[in-house]
Amino acid sequence: MIQSLPLLDKKVLVPRGENQAKSFSQLVEREGGIPIEIPLIAFRPIEKVDRLQDSLKALDTYDWIIFTSNVTVETFFSFYQKEELDERFPKIAVIGKKTAECLKEKGLTATFVPSAYVAEVFVEEFLPYIQSGMRVLLPKGNLAREYISRALSEAGAMVDEIVIYETYLPDESREKLARMLADQQLDILLFTSPSTVDHLMEVVKDFGLEEQLNKCVIGCIGPVTEKKLVEHGLVVHASPEEYTVKEMIKSTIAYLDVEEL
C-alpha cells in the first residue's frame, strides 16, 4: 500500500533565505508539500563599530562569549578571521545545536550548549557557570531580546552587549508575499522567529490581507514566537515542545490529521 503524504499539494511558507531554506524545504517536500520560499528576514552586518574593535582587542579579558544563532557566528567572523583570535578566545556558550555546528565549521567547539534552544532555558542552565565579576561578551542583532544580558548581570557578571548585525524584510519578499496571500496561494504559514511574524504582519496590514490570512494554518517554533503571533491576534494551530523545524512540521501534520477526522 502506498503511504499517503500528509501535506500533499499544500503550499507551505518557508520564511528563510536561500542559504537556510534548503533543509526546511526538503522536509516539506518529503511530506508531499510544496515549499514556497519567501525570506521574511534577512541580515546585514553593521559597519565595524569601535566597541566591537575594542572588545576584540581585549578578547583575552573575557571569560565567556555567547553566540545565540548561526547569524551571530557568521557575522562575528566576517569582521575578523578566526586565526587572528585563536589564542585569545574565551570559553564559548551557544543556543542551539545548529549554532554549535556552525561554530565547529570555524574550528571552534562550544563549551556549553543548553538542553532546549530558548533564552529562558539557556539562562537557567548556564547560570551555574557564572561567578560574580566574570566578563561576558554577547554579540547580537539589533532586535535581539535583553533577557540573557539582564539575567547574567543580575548574577554579577559584567556583560558587554554589542550589536553586530541588523535585520530587515527584503523588498522582493514583501511583494511576493503580498501577491501570494492576495491570491490565496499559501495554505500553511510556518514561523521560526518573532521577527518573521512582525514582518509578515507588516505586509498583511499594509495590503489589507487580514481575511486571507485567517484562512491559513499557522505553526511556529518556540514560546516567544508563539507569543508574538498571539499578540497579533492570530490563532496558533501547531507549536511543538521541541523547537526544531522537523518537529514543527510534525506538529502541523498532527493538527491537519485531527481537522480531517
Results as ranks from 00 to 15, higher is better:
residue 137 L to C: 08
residue 167 T to P: 05
residue 220 C to W: 09
residue 180 M to Q: 14
residue 122 F to V: 10
residue 91 K to G: 02
residue 20 Q to D: 11
residue 201 M to T: 01
residue 202 E to K: 08
residue 202 E to M: 11
residue 5 L to H: 13
residue 252 T to S: 09
residue 222 G to W: 01
residue 64 W to A: 14
residue 178 A to N: 00
residue 60 D to C: 03
residue 188 I to V: 14
residue 52 L to K: 05
residue 236 V to T: 11
residue 219 G to A: 02
residue 105 E to V: 03
residue 106 K to I: 07
residue 151 A to Q: 13
residue 101 E to G: 00
residue 187 D to P: 11
residue 191 F to E: 04
residue 68 T to E: 05
residue 63 D to R: 10
residue 223 P to H: 10
residue 190 L to I: 09
residue 43 F to R: 03
residue 1 M to H: 12
residue 70 N to H: 07
residue 102 C to W: 02
residue 30 R to I: 08
residue 83 E to F: 08
residue 132 S to T: 14
residue 124 E to I: 06
residue 139 P to H: 04
residue 101 E to Y: 07
residue 38 I to A: 03
residue 211 E to Y: 02
residue 145 R to A: 12
residue 82 K to G: 04
residue 197 V to T: 03
residue 35 P to Y: 01
residue 49 V to Q: 15
residue 107 G to I: 03
residue 156 G to C: 01
residue 254 A to S: 15
residue 230 V to C: 02
residue 114 P to F: 03
residue 251 S to R: 13
residue 120 E to L: 06
residue 233 G to M: 04
residue 79 F to T: 12
residue 76 F to I: 09
residue 29 E to S: 15
residue 148 I to E: 09
residue 31 E to M: 13
residue 51 R to K: 11
residue 201 M to Y: 02
residue 251 S to P: 03
residue 241 E to Q: 10
residue 94 V to W: 04
residue 1 M to G: 15
residue 42 A to R: 04
residue 170 P to K: 01
residue 16 R to K: 12
residue 121 V to F: 01
residue 160 D to S: 14
residue 74 E to I: 10
residue 241 E to L: 07
residue 20 Q to E: 14
residue 208 G to S: 05
residue 60 D to G: 05
residue 242 E to I: 14
residue 168 Y to F: 14
residue 137 L to P: 06
residue 127 L to E: 08
residue 242 E to H: 10
residue 20 Q to V: 05
residue 34 I to H: 12
residue 116 A to S: 14
residue 253 I to E: 03
residue 162 I to R: 06
residue 131 Q to V: 07
residue 224 V to S: 10
residue 97 K to W: 12
residue 251 S to W: 02
residue 207 F to M: 11
residue 54 D to S: 12
residue 138 L to M: 04
residue 195 S to V: 06
residue 186 L to D: 02
residue 62 Y to P: 09
residue 85 L to T: 05
residue 180 M to D: 15
residue 88 R to E: 09
residue 134 M to I: 06
residue 64 W to I: 14
residue 228 K to H: 09
residue 119 A to G: 11
residue 55 S to I: 10
residue 61 T to G: 00
residue 44 R to E: 13
residue 7 L to T: 11
residue 7 L to C: 07
residue 46 I to D: 07
residue 2 I to E: 15
residue 202 E to G: 00
residue 16 R to L: 08
residue 3 Q to N: 12
residue 219 G to E: 02
residue 57 K to N: 05
residue 29 E to I: 12
residue 126 F to E: 00
residue 244 T to E: 05
residue 149 S to A: 15
residue 150 R to I: 13
residue 146 E to C: 06
residue 51 R to H: 00
residue 63 D to T: 08
residue 13 L to K: 09
residue 252 T to F: 01
residue 30 R to K: 15
residue 182 A to I: 02
residue 215 K to M: 08
residue 64 W to Q: 13
residue 22 K to D: 12
residue 164 I to W: 07
residue 55 S to R: 14
residue 27 L to W: 00
residue 207 F to N: 10
residue 226 E to F: 02
residue 251 S to D: 13
residue 75 T to D: 12
residue 240 P to N: 05
residue 108 L to M: 14
residue 258 V to F: 12
residue 221 I to C: 08
